[in-house]
Amino acid sequence: MLKANKSMIRQFILFNTFVTLIFVSGCSVQPENIINSLEQNKTLEPIAIEITPLEPLKPMPPAQVHAILLPQEDGKVGKLLVADDGQETMLDQAWQGVETKNLDDKQIFSEDIIRAKYRELLDNMPKKPNSYTLYYQYDSIDITKDSNDTLAEILNDIKSHPTFRINIIGHTDRGGKNIYNDTLSMKRANQVAQFLTDNEIDEQLIVLDYYGEEQPIIPTEDGVKNEFNRRVEITVK
C-alpha cells in the first residue's frame, strides 16, 4: 500500500480540484489519477479541501473515453476492440483498460479498484435472465415427459419474481418440409404462451418468435429428425 507523504497529499488535493473542474467543464479525467486517489483514499484520513475554481483550461483537451474489459460470469474473458481516429487496439485480458488518448498504453487495473469506482454502475446491472428449453415429440406440439417438470419450473419462476418480459421461441428439427416446420414451430411457441396465459400470466408480457428448422442446436442434414432440435426456448426477464 502507498504510504502518504506531503507530496502525495498535495497531489490528492490537486486531483480533487481537478475533478471539480471536470464536473463543471465536462472535460477529461485520467484514470490513473482516479486510481491513485482511490488508493490514497484508503490510507489517508479524510481531508477538508477548499475548492478554488481555476481558470478554464485552454484549449479544451479532446474528450477522453476509457474502456475496461471485465471477465464474464463464467470466468472467461472476451475481447473488446477499441478504435479511435484510425487507430485501434484489442483488450483481451481481465481488468485491462485503455483510454483513447493513448491506445498503445493498455493497463491491467486492480479488480477492487474498478469495483469501487464503478460500484453503482455494476450494482445496477440487471441479473442474467433465466432460460429454459422444452423438448417435443416428433411432428407434435406435445412436450416430452421430462419437459413437464421444466414447464412447472417456468411457471413457478415467473410467479415468484417480478417478471417484465417472457420471450418464447419455437423451433423444429429438419424432418419434414421447411414451410410445414415454420407453422409447427409457431404452434409450439403458441401452445406454451397459451399454457402460461391459462395459468394467469399476463399476455402482455409475452413475446413470441418462431424459426422453424432454421436454428438447430445440433446441425443436421435436411430431413433428419433430432430430439434436441425439436424445442421451444423460454427466457424469463
Binding site: P62, V65, A67, L69, Q72, G78, L80, L81, A83, Y118
Partner: peptide, 17 residues
C-alpha cells in the same frame, strides 16, 4: 464521442467524459 467499441463475446465498461 471519439472511439468505437467492437466486441468478441464480452463484458466491459465504457466511460466517456
Amino acid at each position: 464521442k471519439t472511439a468505437t467499441m467492437g466486441i468478441r463475446g464480452t463484458h466491459f465498461i465504457v466511460e466517456s467524459e
